[in-house]
């Protein structure tokens, strides 16, 4: 890493593009996990536990597969952006799909 001032400058176009890729993965998987939770009739804490396990598994897989185990190259704050930033956004999508499929199946 060079010590000149230019090494810290980031390209905003790529930051936005990478963030969109991450959201695409997390949005689509959360909705399908919600459908799965409703189909197997999960209730209360089991459903939320299922979401947390699946969400963090997908995030970990993303950081190892798509980011090639070097997420700091693609995200400004990798731990926060990949694992926590969109947690509640995905939770709402998950709960929606979960309750929807639970009501249809049950």
């Amino acid at each position: 890493m060079s010590s000149d001032g230019y090494s810290d400058i980031n390209f905003s176009g790529n930051i936005i593009k990478n963030k969109k890729s991450l959201l695409y993965v997390q949005d689509s998987t959360s909705l399908v996990f919600g459908l799965g939770a409703g189909i197997i009739q999960l209730e209360s804490l089991n459903g939320f536990g299922f979401f947390l396990i699946c969400y963090f598994s997908v995030s970990f897989l993303y950081s190892t597969w798509i980011c090639q185990s070097n997420p700091s190259k693609y995200y400004l704050n990798p731990l926060y952006e990949i694992y926590f930033e969109s947690l509640f956004r995905e939770l709402t999508g998950y709960v929606m799909a979960w309750t929807f499929s639970y009501a249809i199946v049950g």
Partner: peptide, 13 residues
């Protein structure tokens, strides 16, 4: 050889 684009300006260009 990457799936995502490097965010550092000097690499992004």
């Amino acid at each position: 050889g990457e799936y995502l684009s490097d965010i550092r300006y000097r690499k992004a260009t």
